[in-house]
Amino acid sequence: MADVAIGGTLLRRRGAPLRRPVSAGIGPGLSVLYLSLLVGLPVAALISKSANVNAWSFVWHDPHTRSVLEFTFFIALAIAVLNAITGVALAWVLVRDDFPGKRIVNSLIDLPFALPTIVAGLVLLTLYGPGSPIGVNVAATRVGVLFALLFVTLPFVTRAVQPVLLSLELDVEDAAACLGAKPLTIFRRIILPAILPATLTGAALAFARALGEYGSVVLIGGNIPHTEIGSQVIANLVENGAPQAAAAVGLALIVMALLVLLVLALVTRRWSRHA
C-alpha cells in the first residue's frame, strides 16, 4: 500500500509540470482570491478599525461594556460546563440505551443547528415568556438567556462524544466488571478517560458559540441592559454610530474565544502526551 502511494506521488510530481503549464496556478489563485476577498479583507478591515486607543479605552472604562463582557464570559463558561454534563448523558443514552423512537430523538439533536436562531428565540419566548402555558416566565431575565444558549449549543458535546462512545470496546468494561469494579468505577476509570478529549472539544465549541450568540437571545433577553451579552452591545454600538468601539468589543470577544481554544489545545496536547 505504501509503495503504491509513494509511486503515485512520484508519478504525479513527475507528470505535473508537463500536464499543467502556466495555468496550474490559476485555480488555487482563484480560491485564495475568493477567501481573501470574502473573509480576509473584512476581518482585516475590522482589525484596522479597532486599532484605536480611544476605542480600547472605551471597552476598558465603560462600566456597562465591562460588566457585559464579564457576564458573557461567565455565562459561556456555565454553558460549557452544563453542556459537558448533559451532552455526555445524552450521548450515553443514545449509544448504550435502547427505546422506541430512538432514531427520532437522535435526529432531533440536530434541530438547533437547522432552526434559525431567531426562531429558536421565538419558540423559547412562547413557552418560557409572558403568557407561558406552563406558568414559567423567564423573559427579560438572565435565566432566559441561559435557556436560549442551552438550546442553541445542545448538539456540540453530544455529537462529539457519540462516535467515541460507539467505538469503545465493551470487552474492557466486561473485564473490569469481572474483576469487581462497580459501574461508577468503570465509568470513571475506563469510559471517562476515553471520552474526555471529545467532551472538552465539544464544550469548547459550545463556549465559543455562546460567547458570540445573538439571534436566539435578542427576543428572550427582552432588550434590557441587564440581560445583554457581548453581541448585543456590538449591535447597539453600531446603531448608535460608534463602529470603532463596536470593533474593539468584537475583537475582545474574538480574543476571549481564541484564548479558551488555545488553553484547551495545550491541555489536550499535554494530556495525550501523558497517556
Binding site: 475590522l46 453581541s231 456590538i234 449591535a235 453600531v238 470593533a247 468584537g250 481554544l261
Partner: peptide
C-alpha cells in the same frame, strides 16, 4: 493560513461578521 481563514466564520459571532462587512463597505 487558508485553513484558519476557512474556519474563521465558525469562530466569529455573526454580529462581528456583519460588523466587519459593515466596516469594509461603510
Amino acid at each position: 493560513l487558508v485553513n484558519a481563514v476557512i474556519n474563521m466564520p465558525f469562530a466569529m459571532s455573526p454580529v462581528i461578521i456583519g460588523l466587519s462587512v459593515f466596516v469594509l463597505y461603510g
